[in-house]
Design a protein around this nucleic acid. Structure first.
Lengths: 144, 144
DNA sequence: AACTATCATTTAACAGGTTAATAAAAATAG
DNA sequence: CTATTTTTATTAACCTGTTAAATGATAGTT
């Protein structure tokens, strides 16, 4: 029987926590959770999207995203409006103040990412990304 | 600037979710969360431990573990008693009914793990474990 | 022995992960 | 064109993740 320590979900979780330790503190200074930051980042890159697109882009389930957007909207970092064509869709746009906050934080996080890459090794990081992607692909395939 | 998709926390999260899809449904049938299952598994292997040891073993923070144990105890899967030597410590033991539940679920999960190993490739899985471990090591090192 | 610091655990508070249920708009079938 | 189905988003309910604060027990000091 496989030993207890051989747990893929646990190993992945542990790794994620370790990586978060690197990025979270800076975000917390601005009262941003990693997920809120992820959404802000995505919107900064694309300017605007509907909720479902953000959900896919950020790997967030709709219920989580719903809460996150409510929060970000309340803080004025994001603007929500029903989509023109399809009234079901919500159109999300990053606000000026959202963009300012992004510009304040992004460079610092970028430095940390570079430092992490250096410590871990560029090649290994690439390899890790590839393995993770392949894992998602091959494990997801099972559902009929 | 690094593109949005190059996010290690996100990649790790996505992978974890994909893997969970494999194991969660069976657990949910028995009203067990992945973490509750992890604790039960750890206790089955060692029979009994104090809370802090479980916490380290299962990579759970104490507040989470505290809630999990309260739940498992209420369901009679686990027995809690103050430790003999040190009254601060809580001694946790798996109950007979906890052991029975484990024996019911474990073989099914084992099969799923084997299937996953086969689909992903044994070598790749080993490599992934190693990379994740190394990542935790090298990223954790930063704090002084 | 009394005071203080440390340690193990719990509680609180807030956010996200997850499944199921709901509401409303849009697409499709008949 | 109405009835049904599908899609989009939200809400609810429960659990975990996470930081900070609180409680209670132990160890160390003076």
């Amino acid at each position: 029987m496989r030993t207890f320590q051989r747990s893929l979900p646990m190993a992945l979780m542990r790794a994620r926590e370790a990586v978060m330790c690197e990025f979270s503190p800076e975000l917390r200074k601005h009262d941003l959770s990693p997920q809120q930051w992820r959404v802000l980042r995505a919107l900064e890159e694309r300017s605007s999207m509907d909720a479902t697109t953000i959900s896919k882009h950020c790997a967030l389930l709709m219920p989580s995203l719903s809460r996150i957007l409510k929060n970000l909207e309340a803080r004025g970092l994001v603007i929500r409006a029903p989509s023109a064509g399809d009234q079901r869709r919500t159109h999300i746009e990053i606000s000026d103040s959202g963009r300012s906050l992004f510009k304040l934080i992004a460079p610092l996080q970028e430095l940390r990412y570079e430092s992490l890459t250096e410590r871990f090794g560029y090649g290994k990081l690439e390899l890790l990304y590839e393995l993770l992607e392949e894992l998602v692909e091959k494990v997801g395939k099972e559902e009929v």
